[in-house]
Design a protein around this nucleic acid. Sequence first.
DNA 1: AATGAATGAGCCTTCATTCAT
DNA 2: AATGAATGAAGGCTCATTCAT
Lengths: 211, 211, 211, 211
Amino acid sequence: MLKTFEKLSTARQHEIIDTTAEVFAENGYHGTSIPSICERTGISVGALYKYFKNKEDIYVSVLQRGIDIIENDLYNEMPEGETIYDALNIIFNGLLPFYDNYRQYIILYIDAGTFSMNQFSYAITDRLENLASTYHIGLVDKYKATGSINPDIDSAYVAYFIDTYLTLFSYSLVSEYYRRRFDLFFGLDSSVAKNQERIEIILKSLRLLLE
Amino acid sequence: MLKTFEKLSTARQHEIIDTTAEVFAENGYHGTSIPSICERTGISVGALYKYFKNKEDIYVSVLQRGIDIIENDLYNEMPEGETIYDALNIIFNGLLPFYDNYRQYIILYIDAGTFSMNQFSYAITDRLENLASTYHIGLVDKYKATGSINPDIDSAYVAYFIDTYLTLFSYSLVSEYYRRRFDLFFGLDSSVAKNQERIEIILKSLRLLLE
Amino acid sequence: MLKTFEKLSTARQHEIIDTTAEVFAENGYHGTSIPSICERTGISVGALYKYFKNKEDIYVSVLQRGIDIIENDLYNEMPEGETIYDALNIIFNGLLPFYDNYRQYIILYIDAGTFSMNQFSYAITDRLENLASTYHIGLVDKYKATGSINPDIDSAYVAYFIDTYLTLFSYSLVSEYYRRRFDLFFGLDSSVAKNQERIEIILKSLRLLLE
Amino acid sequence: MLKTFEKLSTARQHEIIDTTAEVFAENGYHGTSIPSICERTGISVGALYKYFKNKEDIYVSVLQRGIDIIENDLYNEMPEGETIYDALNIIFNGLLPFYDNYRQYIILYIDAGTFSMNQFSYAITDRLENLASTYHIGLVDKYKATGSINPDIDSAYVAYFIDTYLTLFSYSLVSEYYRRRFDLFFGLDSSVAKNQERIEIILKSLRLLLE
DNA sequence: AATGAATGAGCCTTCATTCAT
DNA sequence: AATGAATGAAGGCTCATTCAT
């Protein structure tokens, strides 16, 4: 027999989880109360506890949904591009609409790296981390083949480099802290700088160091 | 009139704050209770509220102390080294003893990048972020002068690159999440890999991309 | 129109009530939840509330069934025996199989004597208490007639004496408390003593004081 | 350092526990809510949880106090009396003022025999049960010595007999159920019968069967 | 200056009961 | 007739903060 929650329409399930993710993103796990989730989702306390076992189960479900989204929206296909820089351009720009729709998941993704969230690392570790390393190493290998990157360099090094910049750029999209950190290095004024501008700097940086 | 807390000996002040930092690091801001701080520090509730205005004030004081330590222990002087790689070797290895003494502050430093901690950004932003960018740009400039790095490249790019790797390595010292992420890229087994090994990979990576 | 519950086969009705009685026996009235009853009986919440008005009604139905059983299984016929001691031997030993099948009702019978269950007294008082006194007074009168008991003693005194020992023995079958109390008086080791042994002590006791 | 509760005056401690005992007696363990205890004792929830670890701890403390009282008020000294019947007369009548002051503890004492309270038997078993058996066996032995009771009968049998009648009389003082059971046997009208009358019947009963 | 007892709002969770399907 | 999703009050317990001593 299906779990109660799984009997809801997929759209409704997503709506509930995405909204809940927002609340967790805004306040953190411990800072989020069950009533506040109920209020935002329009679900009664009783119903919520029919849907999920407890607060931890709610959080894990949110994290799983986040990974699903990242998997489907970000890592589903390799971008087409003449050189790896074209490809990276597409990837970085692709983050912007993702950010518009699902910024809460980027936030939770940062939270997941936090020490006090270690108890949840089991819930994301297996799937998410593999995803990024596999994807980026694949990307590098692909462009090694087309000659736009030096084939003598171990792909892992390049892939880690790219992933790192991508990760910190994602962080900067939602965290004032990471945004200021970036802007400070490159002399940008955080209150007016545009993400487009930041992407250009990053791409230039990648090019500079990879070529 | 002096704040009550400041009348304590400096050593006692540090002892209290460092211990409190541990508790916050372990449980996060919302997950930390005042009674748990009192228990760990051996201070009575009444005294704690004489020392600090409220929970938020305690947290801010902890963050300030963290920056003091980082400033004094990590960024106080440029390492001596023939090439920039020698210098970086010293810097990365210098993190290990720092980690032994003050890992709680690294954890709090990660927490600070979290969205739900944005309310505390003001308390660290001004000092800490400047510190890192100034230091690393200075470092790069210094070694540009000695010729061990290409003077045509804008120092900001190199400095950001170095700072990024340093930051993520710090994170990996305390966060399972970041540790696994790194290990996954480079095919290390997280349960046995040593930090020394990770530092070598990072230094090789820096060298590879900078030379 | 018949109550919905009464349209079920008698066997099914008994099955449901006996199982529900188990749950109430294990956890007490307030400690028993409707969902736990549904789970154990395999009945849906909706159905349960079609069968019974509310939790109180369920409990009362269980108590009524308990009295039915006691009436039919324990007090339906006088035991045949040469002397009253033979008869009592049969009665006490008859409790053991009853206990195997319906221990939950003995438990509920103890609960019923509890102050906080006074609200349910009405549901059992009228039938159950009369049953025991009538039966035991009848028993005594019968054996007075056969000469195995002194006819000058008021039957009520003897009957109450017998009923008391029978009641406390029943209690000891299900309650650790009453079992230990008995064993302590007679120097038995609760962890190994057998019910057969206890019955013998009781019968000896009755004989000693009645003869 | 003393527990917070133990810093209160003994009178206040007793006041709190005795009142709490009343609430538990009226509603049973599961039927009693923490707020209801707070309301009746005039203590705040926070204070209550400073005094006691949790609900179970409160209950156990109440049980312990009950045993203290029983020990000091009921079993502290052997009654003086020419024959054992004089002594028993004193004992049974001694229950009446005890009942006036501490009826709640008699109720809890009944509850303790309940199956769903088995989890608490550890808290009373060791002290209370020994108390009664030791006392009554001692009583019987004493009067065997003075010749008012047949010295050939094993004291345990007589003591258990006495204790049983005493126990059920106590029960009848607080439980409608046990009161009616007694009255039914002896043809009393529960609505008008006096305890004095019941004591006389019991004493006559003891005399009848012991002599 | 220091203590820790006291408060009661708020936490997570479960409950008896209703009602649309 | 039967299901089980939904409700929200109430459960036990912890918390940040105050204040009398």
